[in-house]
Simulated scan of single mutants.
Amino acid sequence: MLEERILNLLSTNNVAVLATVNADGSPAATPVRYYSLGFEIFYTSWNASVKSRNLRRDPRVSAGIVAPLVGQASSRGAQIFGTARTLERVDPEADRYWEAFRWQSDHAERGRPLDEPPMDPLTVITPHRILYTDHWLRRTGHHPRQTWRPDGA
C-alpha cells in the first residue's frame, strides 16, 4: 500500500524542490519540473546550472514533493533522499527516461518543432529513502509518516 501511495504521488505531481549543496557547504533549493519512472524522478538541466555543478561535486540530493494542500488533514507529500546522476542525450541509458519524458508539451509551449527532440542532459535521482507523509493514513490507524527503502528494510 505504501509503494502504491508513493507512486501515485510521484505520477500525479510534477514540481519538486531540489536541495543540493553549494561549494561552501550552504544549501541550495531549486524548484524543478520533473517526471517519474518508478521511484526515480528526473528532469532536464543545463550542465552549467548551479544545481548541476553542485551535483557533479556532491551527488547527494534531497527533493521535496507536495500535493496541493486543502487543509491540515489533507497534508500529503514526500521527501526523497538519494543520489543524482546526469545522463547525456547520447547515453543509451537515457533512452528509457526520454520515453517517459513528455517533452512534446514543453516544445509546444515554447513554439519549438515537435520533430526535433531535445538534446538536453537528464538528471536522474535514485532514492535511497523516501519519507512519505499522508495525514489521511490516520483514518485507517496508520502513522501519517512512513519510510520507504528500496530494499524494504
Rank of each mutant, 00 (worst) to 15 (best):
residue 126 T to P: 10
residue 83 T to H: 03
residue 70 V to M: 15
residue 8 N to I: 00
residue 6 I to R: 00
residue 75 S to C: 10
residue 134 D to S: 09
residue 144 P to Q: 03
residue 80 I to C: 03
residue 39 F to S: 03
residue 32 V to R: 03
residue 108 A to W: 14
residue 56 R to E: 05
residue 50 V to H: 15
residue 110 R to L: 13
residue 54 N to V: 04
residue 97 Y to M: 06
residue 1 M to H: 08
residue 69 L to A: 08
residue 95 D to S: 10
residue 23 A to Q: 13
residue 4 E to Y: 08
residue 4 E to Q: 07
residue 18 L to W: 04
residue 98 W to V: 10
residue 33 R to V: 15
residue 45 S to V: 13
residue 5 R to S: 01
residue 102 R to Q: 07
residue 15 V to D: 01
residue 28 A to H: 14
residue 49 S to G: 10
residue 146 Q to S: 11
residue 22 N to V: 01
residue 98 W to C: 05
residue 127 P to C: 14
residue 90 V to M: 11
residue 38 G to D: 04
residue 77 G to V: 07
residue 147 T to D: 09
residue 95 D to I: 09
residue 25 G to E: 15
residue 25 G to V: 12
residue 85 R to P: 04
residue 27 P to N: 10
residue 135 H to K: 04
residue 79 Q to L: 13
residue 26 S to Q: 08
residue 147 T to K: 03
residue 26 S to R: 11
residue 129 R to N: 06
residue 55 L to G: 00
residue 74 S to E: 09
residue 124 V to T: 06
residue 119 M to G: 15
residue 88 E to T: 08
residue 41 I to Q: 02
residue 6 I to D: 00
residue 62 S to E: 14
residue 76 R to V: 01
residue 128 H to S: 12
residue 33 R to Q: 14
residue 1 M to T: 11
residue 76 R to Y: 02
residue 118 P to H: 13
residue 119 M to F: 08
residue 101 F to N: 09
residue 140 T to Q: 12
residue 117 P to V: 13
residue 74 S to C: 06
residue 127 P to G: 11
residue 148 W to G: 05
residue 13 N to Q: 11
residue 99 E to A: 14
residue 122 L to A: 01
residue 3 E to A: 04
residue 114 L to W: 04
residue 29 A to C: 09
residue 86 T to M: 14
residue 96 R to T: 11
residue 26 S to N: 09
residue 8 N to R: 01
residue 133 T to Y: 05
residue 91 D to M: 06
residue 146 Q to F: 13
residue 10 L to Q: 00
residue 2 L to Q: 06
residue 145 R to F: 07
residue 116 E to M: 12
residue 67 A to P: 00
residue 13 N to C: 06
residue 98 W to I: 02
residue 122 L to Y: 00
residue 15 V to W: 02
residue 112 R to P: 00
residue 87 L to P: 03
residue 62 S to F: 02
residue 79 Q to E: 05
residue 146 Q to N: 10
residue 31 P to Y: 13
residue 46 W to G: 09
residue 143 H to I: 11
residue 113 P to Y: 09
residue 96 R to K: 06
residue 46 W to E: 10
residue 145 R to S: 15
residue 148 W to I: 10
residue 147 T to V: 15
